[in-house]
């Protein structure tokens, strides 16, 4: 993807994504190449090369006497492992989170996103809340896939695609995630930024009945803060963007049952109330 350079027996690449300039270095050329080859998987959009000047975040993978792989940000040791694959998976997630926190001109919400008839439906939620499952079911019904992890909002409150592979649980076991492209489910990626029609705060609960409750204005924004990655880093910009988004959208809260039964009901509600 990018030129791998060498310095003091470590290998590195510099790149920019969502306005964040990063340098990633690694003790092993092979591992560095593997990371570099996966950058487009980690950041499906917004990636560009960088000369390596004015670097803001320095992430390094080092090795130590006790552990084969040790992750650092700057001089701070973050975590470690002797197993390559789990380390790489963790590392990819970490890179995404760093960019989500420090992105310029964008606010990242931890959320699933689909597009339906020209407007976006955002599904903020915690892990294990069923975001990916619901996004997958919605794309099966023809909704455009934007993301199963981040709603990327610009200054005008539009949501941009972050169409990473879906991280699906339940294939190997209830916990482990398997990365699958949306096309695997017959889905299609969205391309254009969309105005947000509806934000649905929902979680799966066995036997739950759909009972939508509207959350108004500022109280809706307050609900979204729990899922806003840069809220502590840049509260002023985050609040401004969330407010713009919430002004144009309806914010609804409800528990839900099985995603396969709920998806059609949700799209019908979306069409009636949010388009």
């Amino acid at each position: 993807m990018f030129e791998i350079r060498e310095s003091k027996s470590s290998f590195f690449v510099c790149f920019e994504v969502y306005g964040v300039r990063l340098k990633v270095s690694c003790f092993s050329e092979g591992l560095m190449r593997e990371i570099d080859d996966n950058l487009e998987f980690i950041f499906p959009v917004g990636l560009s090369g960088s000369k390596g000047t004015r670097i803001e975040r320095k992430i390094s993978v080092r090795t130590s006497k006790n552990f084969r792989y040790v992750l650092f940000e700057g001089r701070k040791k973050l975590t470690y492992s002797n197993d390559k694959n789990p380390f790489i998976n963790y590392f990819f997630g970490y890179l995404r989170r760093i960019v989500a926190e420090f992105a310029k001109s964008f606010v990242f919400l931890h959320a699933g996103v689909v597009g339906w008839k020209g407007k976006a439906l955002i599904l903020p939620g915690r892990s294990f809340g069923g975001k990916t499952t619901l996004v997958r079911e919605l794309t099966k019904l023809g909704a455009k896939y934007y993301s199963d992890e981040y709603a990327v909002l610009d200054e005008a409150g539009l949501v941009h695609p972050f169409p990473k592979t879906l991280s699906v649980r339940g294939i190997v076991d209830d916990y482990q995630q398997v990365e699958l492209p949306v096309e695997e489910f017959g889905g299609e990626k969205g391309v254009e930024p969309l105005a947000v029609g509806m934000i649905l705060l929902t979680e799966y609960e066995q036997g739950a009945v759909w009972a939508p409750r509207y959350v108004n204005g500022g109280f809706g924004v307050l609900e979204l803060l729990s899922h806003t990655i840069p809220i502590r880093y840049d509260p002023k910009f985050s609040l401004k963007v969330l407010n713009k988004t919430a002004n144009r959208a309806i914010i609804v809260k409800s528990k839900r049952g099985e995603a396969s039964d709920f998806a059609l009901k949700l799209l019908s509600f979306f069409e009636k109330k949010a388009l």
């Binding site: 380390f87 998976n89 963790y90 989170r97 931890h110 915690r126 294990f128 899922h227 990655i229 880093y233």
Partner: peptide, 25 residues
Amino acid sequence: APTSVMAAVSCSCLVPGDCVATACP
């Protein structure tokens, strides 16, 4: 307001010390 770790809640980990997000199992 959550920290970025809490808001992102990936739940992936390498060691127990990575498990700081209360939203994870």
